[in-house]
Write a protein that binds this DNA or RNA. Structure first.
Lengths: 212, 212
DNA sequence: AGGTTGACCGATCGAGCGTTCGACCCACCC
DNA sequence: GGGTGGGTCGAACGCTCGATCGGTCAACCT
């Protein structure tokens, strides 16, 4: 009232957000193609055509879920990385951030990792670019890490990056039934990956070399 | 002709196999729910109703693809593991076997890893059991490995198993465009995982409790 | 009061889906 | 020749889906 107009706009945005969250749940449960707008309509208590007031198509709905999740993960990560120098710490932050979002927004993250192929045309291109940016950021951290530790290349950087994301994303199955807190899980994955990436002479036992 | 009857039966089995392979391609490309029997009918050059002479339903088609792939991977793995004593060698064989199948039967393996959720009822149960057997076999190897190297637990065994499968399955994206031969890729993943799993104990304080 | 607009709905359309059914073809056996 | 059964097909059924369209109704503006 006092302000320009955002009171109505805020309601709109709020409901849109609620619809997105509900849609993410349904997509996560049944998969994009198997889920119907009618499912969303029922669970959200909105008429079928009412959905189309907020989204122009089912594709756009899927896109917005993935776009928002990915942007949030990325911007949060960049914020946390600001001012950090040690590559090891950067890697730890990346893993904590990623795993943390899985624990916090499981449905949306599951849609993000499972339904990329369901995107079409321009929507797919935009998400592809964001994923690439995320992936490149990770690869750069690994490059720094390898340089600073003077480790040989156990694996090419792109393979290592791909493996790391594979590890992190595999936890959705593990997490659902597990009561392991996210920070602990992230710490496990951090050690698991870091140890392998830095590498150590396979045959010689080399115990207790460095302390961080 | 000279033999009993298997000439007809062999033709049958042959065509069934061809249909399975073609269906795997389509499922891998478009996803199970998005792919239609009509797609398969067109690409295989068989009439729509002709498909139903070989398969009783779309679900059974999906099940047979996953069942055959998983059984082949598992039995090949067991065969290769026979007579091997060193846990490190066992792990290497497991990874080589898994990655090798991805390179060899990419479409079917992609369906196996991507379309588990698309299975329903009894079909899902059967595949779940096979996956569990595979996963348990892996966990046992990791348990031996940890015992024989005297390494502390960097991560609980179930987390490590899950991470390993996540790593291995993530390569389908990497492999499609890559020209890296499968054995090389497997070797990279082997080193990457082994180094982290054995760990080089930064401070050895053994964070986690024992995993059962 | 009259007009405009944002928010929402019921009814419906056209398309595509998995599956079924009855009919054909043809190689084989009596 | 007549029958039998494996293999194949065209046409159709019943259903669900994403999307559209005209209408309603309260809130606001003038």
């Amino acid at each position: 009232m006092a302000e320009h107009a955002p009171s109505l706009s805020a309601n709109h945005e709020e409901k849109l957000e609620r619809l997105l969250a509900t849609a993410a749940e349904i997509f996560a449960e049944k998969g994009y193609h198997h889920a119907s707008i009618r499912d969303l309509s029922r669970r959200a208590g909105v008429s079928l055509s009412g959905i189309y007031y907020y989204f122009s198509s089912k594709q756009e709905l899927l896109f917005m879920i993935q776009d928002r999740s990915l942007r949030t993960v990325l911007s949060e990560l960049k914020r946390k990385l600001a001012g950090i120098d040690h590559p090891e710490e950067k890697l730890r932050i990346l893993i904590q951030n990623h795993v943390g979002f899985f624990a916090q927004k499981m449905a949306a993250m599951r849609v993000l990792t499972h339904e990329y192929d369901a995107l079409e045309g321009g929507y797919r291109d935009k998400i592809r670019d964001l994923r690439l940016e995320y992936s490149n950021l990770c690869t750069e951290i690994l490059r720094e890490l390898r340089r600073s530790t003077g480790a040989g290349d156990v694996a090419p950087l792109n393979v290592a990056t791909s493996a790391l994301f594979g590890m992190m994303n595999s936890i959705h199955a593990r997490y659902q039934s597990g009561t392991v807190p996210a920070e602990r899980l992230a710490e496990h994955l951090y050690r698991l990956f870091l140890g392998g990436f830095i590498g150590h002479s396979p045959r010689s036992a080399s115990v207790g070399r460095r302390a961080d």
